[in-house]
């Protein structure tokens, strides 16, 4: 156990170094490509030069200060006060992010669970019927969804939802935001929430379940032809039993690693979906940051995503170790 903790600690230290280097690089990249000064210069009436400089200095965004100096100050604030800086408009990045994580989690949690369940089941189902019509149909459908741009998919779903709304004359689906009911009744609130979350959930579920489906199918097909499945059949298991008892178990290991990775993405959200459905989550925040030259905000989102990615990687390692006896913890 002590050895395991030691291993874990070593891994985490490595990840922290990685995040540090990657985030620093992102900071320099953002400073090179974004110009908060233009936010002020394009304002009408144009503020005085002094006030522009003052505002930029206050947010530590002045491009006249050497970038290394800005970087030092930025880093010091994070390390000493966990303060990720200010937007060009002077708002705290910390506050903005914490107010948006909730929306992302609400959006992503349901679709992540659904896409894992649906994707993996379809993968198993189609692999067992390789080259039969069920496999051709579902896998063909999946590969079409795999390549359709998210924007197109989302727009088409919105389009049809609006059509349905118009045909029925009722607002069954809401296509923007996460809620519009503000009253005290819990059930009306819940239904209202579901009406809002349904379409983005469908979009996200389709996008990520096709990945699980096609991967799970490949993994299971690989394992189905393994020698040990033949041994199991030679013992007296039917082909179906041998696949279910032996091949399936092995094929779930790489899938569970993928699942671990996706858990982290719950917090970072989905950029395109949030933008299209006007959900104020992390993804939308990032796009706003980019469009508003909010260097500190963009770097903070990037760092947060990076941390989530590495958390996913760590989880993936642990999942694999727990499931595969060949990988021993100690």
């Amino acid at each position: 156990m002590a050895r395991f903790l030691g291993y874990l600690a070593k891994r985490i230290v490595n990840y922290i170094v990685m995040i540090f280097v990657a985030t620093s690089l992102t900071y320099f990249l953002a400073c090179a490509f974004m110009s908060p000064r233009s936010n002020y210069e394009s304002r009408t009436p144009r503020p005085s030069q002094e006030s522009i400089e003052a505002s930029l200095d206050k947010a530590n965004l002045n491009d006249k200060t050497p970038v290394t100096e800005r970087y030092q100050r930025w880093l010091t604030n994070i390390v000493t006060e966990w303060n990720w800086g200010l937007s060009p408009a002077g708002d705290s990045v910390n506050n903005e992010i914490s107010s948006r994580i909730g929306a992302s989690v609400k959006l992503m949690l349901l679709s992540t669970i659904l896409s894992i369940v649906i994707g993996v089941s379809l993968g198993v189902y189609t692999a067992q019927r390789q080259y039969q019509w069920q496999d051709r149909f579902w896998s063909g459908l999946a590969s079409v969804f795999l390549v359709i741009p998210t924007v197109v998919l989302a727009i088409l779903i919105v389009f049809f939802a609006i059509e349905i709304n118009q045909q029925t004359g009722q607002r069954i689906f809401y296509v923007t935001g996460l809620s519009s009911y503000d009253g005290p009744n819990f059930f009306i609130g819940l239904i209202d929430f579901l009406q809002h979350i349904l379409l983005p959930t469908i979009v996200l579920t389709i996008i990520s379940s096709v990945g699980y489906h096609l991967n799970q199918r490949t993994y299971l097909l690989d394992e189905m032809h393994a020698d040990y499945v033949r041994t199991a059949r030679a013992k007296g298991l039917t082909k179906k039993q041998a696949i279910r008892k032996h091949a399936l178990r092995a094929s779930l290991i790489p899938t569970s690693v993928n699942v671990a990775f996706s858990i982290a993405s719950i917090f970072t959200g989905a950029v395109m979906t949030e933008k299209i459905f006007a959900i104020h989550g992390m993804g939308e925040y990032f796009i706003n940051c980019i469009n508003n030259n909010n260097i500190n905000g963009a770097v903070a989102v990037a760092a947060f995503s990076g941390a989530c990615t590495l958390l996913g990687a760590l989880l993936a390692d642990l999942f694999a170790a727990a499931l595969d006896p060949r990988i021993k913890m100690s």
Binding site: M18, I19, A22, T23, T26, L29, T268, V271, F286, I287, I290, A298, V301, A302, A303, S305, G306, T309, L310
Partner: peptide, 9 residues
Amino acid sequence: VIPSFLLVA
């Protein structure tokens, strides 16, 4: 570590 989508953006 950092999703490339963000960096490209």
